[in-house]
């Protein structure tokens, strides 16, 4: 009888499927809405531990794909920079964490000239000139 009880216990243990024990995680809220802009490309900076996504409107997109030979007023770029953080579920991956800055560049036509207008949200340690240079010259990543 003892053997039978032991055996039944073993079968029960075999059939039970307890799920793994994970550290409880909390999702991060969205801090950025693209408002209809599309992703042009992305960038990683491992020295500063950041990752950025560059968005643009259709005029910006055309420029980044080499469709326009000269700049046109109306191009809008947004560079969203996040802190990199360890991925909660995959050791070996880093994922975007907190938004640390959102930089916007608009090219405006003023008195026959194209004038860049730069604004920044979440002011951080931004290198304004480097950001403008990047936004104006980034080539699009391949998107199928």
């Amino acid at each position: 009888m003892k053997n039978a009880i032991l055996y039944l216990s073993l079968i029960l243990v075999f059939c039970s499927c307890a799920s793994g024990v994970n550290k409880k995680v909390h999702l991060r809220e969205y801090a950025f809405n693209d408002s209809g802009l599309k992703v042009i490309t992305a960038r990683l900076n491992d020295r500063s531990g950041t990752m950025s996504t560059l968005y643009g409107n259709s005029a910006a997109f055309d420029w980044s794909m080499g469709k326009n030979t000269s700049r046109i007023g109306g191009e809008v770029y947004k560079l969203v920079t996040y802190k990199q953080q360890d991925h909660a579920f995959w050791y070996g991956s880093r994922i975007n964490g907190k938004v640390i800055q959102v930089e916007t560049l608009q090219l405006k036509q003023q008195a026959g000239r194209i004038v860049p207008v730069y604004t920044i949200e979440y002011p951080g340690p931004a290198d304004t000139l480097a950001s403008i240079n990047y936004m104006m010259n980034a080539t699009a990543a391949y998107f199928p």
């Binding site: 969205y30 809405n33 693209d34 599309k38 992703v39 992305a42 990683l44 491992d46 990752m51 996504t53 996040y82 990199q84 991925h87 070996g92 991956s93 880093r94 994922i95 975007n96 998107f143």
Partner: peptide, 15 residues
């Protein structure tokens, strides 16, 4: 999908 919101971006050190 180009018109959808970005959910996240990742940098993979494993591959």
């Amino acid at each position: 999908y180009r018109n959808w919101q970005v959910m996240s971006t990742t940098s993979r050190l494993d591959n």
